[in-house]
Nucleic acid binder design. Sequence first.
RNA 1: GGAGCCGUGGUGUAGUCAGGUUAACAUGCCGGCCUGUCAAGCCGGAGAUCGCGGGUUCAACUCCCGUCGGCUCCGCCA
Length: 622
Amino acid sequence: MTTPHLLAKIRCKLFISLLECRADLSGRGGKIVMRLQRTYGCGNINRENIGEKVVLAGWVQGRRDHGGLLFVDLRDRSGLVQLVFDQERQGALFTEAEKLRSEYVLAVRGTVIARSPETLNLKLATGEVEISVEDMELLNSARVPPFYIEDGIDTDENLRLRYRYLDLRRPEMQEMLLLRHRLLMATRRCLDERGFWEIDTPMLTRSTPEGARDYLVPSRVSPGYFYALPQSPQLFKQLLMVGGVERYFQITRCFRDEDLRADRQPEFTQIDMELSFCSRDEIITEVEALLSDLLQSILGQKLETPLPAISYEEAMERYGSDKPDTRYGMELRDISEIAGECNFKVFNQVISSGGAVKGINVQGQGNFSRKELDDLTTLVQSWGTGGLAWMIVTEDGFKTPIAKYFAGEQLDSLRKHMDGQSGDLLLFVADEKVNTQKILGQLRVHLARQLDLVPEGEHHFLWVLDFPLFIYDQEEKRYTSNHHPFTAPCDEDIPLLQTDPLKVRSLAYDLVYNGVEIAGGSIRIHDKEMQETVFKLLGLAQEELDEKFGFLLEAFKYGAPPHGGIAFGLDRLLMLMGGRKSIRDVIPFPKTAAGSCLLTGAPAPVSPGQLKDLHIYTVSRK
RNA sequence: GGAGCCGUGGUGUAGUCAGGUUAACAUGCCGGCCUGUCAAGCCGGAGAUCGCGGGUUCAACUCCCGUCGGCUCCGCCA
């Protein structure tokens, strides 16, 4: 990735601004915490500084003690430079330097000297020079750190999280912090240029039905009442549109009390946007402009726009996912027709009861062992389907336990349908249609990772459009919103609201980046009657509506403009731009899978007095 | 709510399947030697009741049960 270059480019600038701040403070008679005042960043020293007196400050990266000669690597956020102490030249200072240990905090004054040709270190940006130290101020000592402060460490993540402040000293983490900063700044600059106003909205708001579980905050002054932390600023940004803002954005924290994943944290940051008087396509164009700007200004990469787009239905048919990773093939193929005619009961029974049989071609993997195939079967069973049928394509036919159920021409047709070449492994799932798609979609992702078919360093973006407005919740026996209850239906599908709600497509859109959903949004309903219709289809009682959404419906009575918007998951975007595997790697202080913070110990018990103030009684944990 | 994997000196691992002498290796740490290293080198030393609790056994890092913590996935995440 390009981040190291980015860091190098920006180092100098950052350091200058730091010096300017220091200059402002001088002469005010403040308390002196440092006798020496630094003049350069460690990583900024180079050949051009030779002969110059400099003052540096930072942490001891390591030392190499040669007896009468001592090397110390000094590190600050700009990089690393070698200090040299010579017993004969430095005398008493040398004795002090011998006491230095890893991560001691230090300021030094010295002269930049050239290294002799045989002692150059070209691996280091500062490797042509070193600092002959003349004065030293030990600013702090340090305990031995629990892990190495260097890139590429292989340490238990518990430790890194518990000592996050040490983890953050590592260059790759500093790069992450810088990249995050750049992304925030570029977003603000770009959206400002495009006429968006940054407006902040409340963190203490009210719980609404639908959506994720809320984080609740008890009210002290209203006993038994609770605020909720926002899952997103959804309602407020719509109210801002009614308020005549026209173009709004916010970089804001959102909270959802659901189980975590590698790309999911209980609190995360969104780039939230909303526009008035716009169509779906105009919003998509705005988003592409933002994304294009961000990729250009942060990674130096050009984004080809317009980005490709497919419908939800096509995504499910071809990839078994509403966030397909298009960096590799292995697309789903439908063999329902053949399956319905063959004698394999598992297949034809599924077809006769309205299900689907689909397969993927795992090219060149016909050498899977029986055990590996059994493991895959167990895996898909754990995902909630009956089993997995397999066929290995050979020169003259198929190696498979189910060949006997198929007529010769059916096998030929199957091979053609699946594009089977000798040595390919074909895997089939037979189930209710959507389940077939989802299971195979998951299997596709699983195998691509396992077989290392995912090309690194590629950036694939894809819009997914035409989501169904509703999905049917089997457990609750009612419709629920696929996106959220404020999403507008497609104009031409509005009549279906009365007759066949599941067929209604919405004006929602998701942006998928390398198989990860990084943004989602929709054109909103701005009409009070339409909003009430949708709420009613969702089975929300009038009373509940009035209580929980009354303010929105009321606002819509006062001339709501047509509007729509989108929200980016900033952490996910950053994760993908930085080529990191987990969202935790791009969040300064992330939480574990159980939602705990290993650094602060949150969540933690509170005192009985605090609970009393909040009118809260707790029940026993067990 | 469910499934899988992991937990052994400061750190990373081996040993666990098949119970048995002093828990091994690397690195870090401490001390000594060493004037051109940059993963410095050489010599010496300290450092672990094997996540925790219970059980089986003459004997448990090892087997069984429970529990805590972490990671990944399913459900969940408008």
